[in-house]
Design a binder for these strands. Structure first.
Lengths: 153, 153
DNA sequence: GGCAATTAAGTTGTGCGCAATTTGATAGTA
DNA sequence: TACTATCAAATTGCGCACAACTTAATTGCC
């Protein structure tokens, strides 16, 4: 009987290389390295780049709203935003409407930094070697997976 | 002119949600949460699970070999392996052939832990909601992307 | 043999990430 | 009004990750 037969769903312990978590882990490491390289000269880390993009695009927003966007909590965002504030990229002010909230917005320096990175997505796309169709397919698959994983919890 | 016309490759700064790095970041966060939940009762973190799989499968191997497999350096692996040794999951011994090297191997407890996690890949696959074909396609795409990203450096 | 160059792990410092807790502000209710 | 509950952000503690450096062992070359 073939090991891929439908009647043998678990043909022994799955090898590491066959597991999706391993593939994801490996790909993320590779992406990380490339972003690190391309962002270094702009003084941004990969999470900072995503945060700055989100802040610049979605206007002044609260820490928890940014947290929903990035799937990160205040334990991660608070120190990250303080570092970005110290770097002059974002401003943080208490919301006068509700002093519990902190509104984060991009400074002009922050906007300039994002503008200077206008070409980054294309650079990454080029390095990834995926066609536009493959890129869209991957994007769609990632969105589907994320939604499904979320649905369970 | 349509914004997706071939003659307009960069129709203004790309929105965060359209960027592949954002999709990857989001998906990884979602996967992380699920692995964290399923591995908690086994006393393993996600990186420890991958490391233990690799060690159990690829026999006694050096720290640097494991580093190639996981794309991590000694700065990450040394403390991680020490924690796993303290937990009784792996053994570390200097290679008598070359005292610079440290050979890492899974203890019987480590093998048992992996055996107890035999069903994890299926559980993850089920939660991800991808068909076998979609899973294989995603896997293939990830491998391709990783290879291409590596090729550039 | 002696000695510089290389190699393998480990250490230090900084940043990202989460769980659990704390601080401070708002909302609700007696 | 006062008291409790809830909510937002920050803090603490621990683990993962990399860059840069250190330590110790091996190799290569004289």
């Amino acid at each position: 009987m073939s090991p891929s037969s439908p009647s043998t769903p678990s043909p022994g312990p799955l090898s590491l290389e066959q597991q999706i978590c391993y593939a994801m882990h490996t790909t993320v490491r590779a992406f990380d390295a490339v972003y690190r390289e391309l962002l270094a000269e702009h003084g941004l880390s990969y999470p900072q780049y995503i945060a700055l993009m989100g802040i610049a695009e979605h206007g002044p927003l609260t820490v928890s709203r940014l947290g929903e966007l990035m799937r990160l909590d205040s334990g991660t965002l608070s120190p990250l935003l303080k570092r970005m504030e110290a770097a002059g990229l974002v401003g943080r002010t208490r919301d006068p409407e509700d002093e519990r909230r902190v509104l984060v917005s991009a400074t002009s320096t922050g906007h300039e930094r994002i503008a200077a990175l206008r070409e980054l997505p294309q650079q990454i796309a080029a390095r990834s070697g995926l066609s536009r169709e493959q890129m869209l397919a991957l994007h769609e698959t990632l969105r589907t997976v994320t939604d499904r994983l979320d649905a369970h919890s």
